[in-house]
């Protein structure tokens, strides 16, 4: 296996060569020992996992000329997802999926009484809209830059599945505050599902867990919202990132390919 080149660290971060006499008598000073400690730990892990190669493969890769701020929209979407995941976990510590009134009361408690609850809930609520906006902007960038073309079709397909899953997150999460707006919006949404011919009626029965909006509909939406879909999204983001790293990112369409004179047929 070829040795990977050293990561191109900026000057300020590169280790300073030792000056003569700095460590004259060969004794290790405490500062040096402390500096060594971190390196030793990382070395210990790396010797057993070889993770550094993977990290270098993921982070220190070549990118084409001409990339710009539009190329950050995918990462931005991922960070919006991470924001949703983190705030969602902490909201779940207070939320109670009880259709008889406990759900609304627990959301009221989060908003009005819990320390920083209003902030965390607002981050989750507004972050959801931000994620939807960013994912569409990211898709528009990929579409208009032609970045979905060979060999990146599978990356695009996974991205479309991620888009659908994100919209499903929006649909299932909308019910959870369990106020009038979320209740009736979910009734309408489930009935829109039901208008699909042949399977529609059974699909809405599945979503409601029965013919009517019942006692387990809310907990069903909650389980889909916080376990089923997030797991799928996380796994598919992993596949998406693998393909991006494996295939490299595409140059903007206005960058012309540079001809290599060495490859040109010699003139006779």
């Amino acid at each position: 296996m070829p040795k990977l080149p050293a990561p191109p660290l900026p000057k300020s971060l590169q280790p300073r060569p030792k000056r003569p006499g700095e460590n004259g008598n060969g004794a290790v000073r405490p500062v040096e020992a402390a500096q060594e400690a971190g390196i030793t730990v990382v070395d210990w892990i790396d010797e057993r996992t070889s993770l550094s190669g993977g990290i270098r493969w993921l982070l220190f890769r070549k990118v084409p000329k001409g990339i710009n701020w539009f190329y950050t929209l995918g990462s931005a979407t991922m960070f919006a997802f991470l924001n949703q995941a983190v705030t969602g976990v902490f909201l779940a510590m207070f939320y109670r999926p009880d259709a008889a009134g406990g759900a609304y009361e627990s959301v009221r408690y989060i908003t009005d009484d819990a320390f920083l609850g209003q902030l965390v809930r607002a981050m989750h609520k507004w972050g959801a809209s931000v994620m939807i906006i960013l994912i569409f902007l990211h898709m528009a960038r990929v579409f208009f830059f032609g970045a979905y073309k060979y060999p990146r079709e599978l990356t695009w397909i996974i991205g479309v599945v991620l888009l659908i899953l994100t919209l499903a997150m929006g649909f299932t999460g909308y019910l959870l505050p369990f106020d009038q707006r979320s209740y009736w919006a979910t009734i309408v949404g489930v009935n829109i599902n039901g208008t699909g011919p042949f399977i529609g009626p059974y699909l809405s029965d599945f979503l409601r867990a029965g013919p009517e909006f019942g006692a387990t509909t809310l907990s069903r939406f909650y389980a889909i919202h916080m376990m089923l879909i997030p797991g799928l999204i996380a796994a598919l983001i992993g596949a998406h990132l693998y393909l991006i790293t494996k295939l490299g990112i595409s140059a903007p369409p206005w960058i012309k390919a540079q001809e290599d004179p060495g490859l040109r047929e010699s003139q006779v």
């Binding site: 259709a99 009134g101 209740y183 009517e212 909006f213």
Partner: peptide, 9 residues
């Protein structure tokens, strides 16, 4: 229509 979930039922 649905028992046990209050007004939502």
């Amino acid at each position: 229509i649905v028992q046990g979930i209050g007004e939502a039922g």
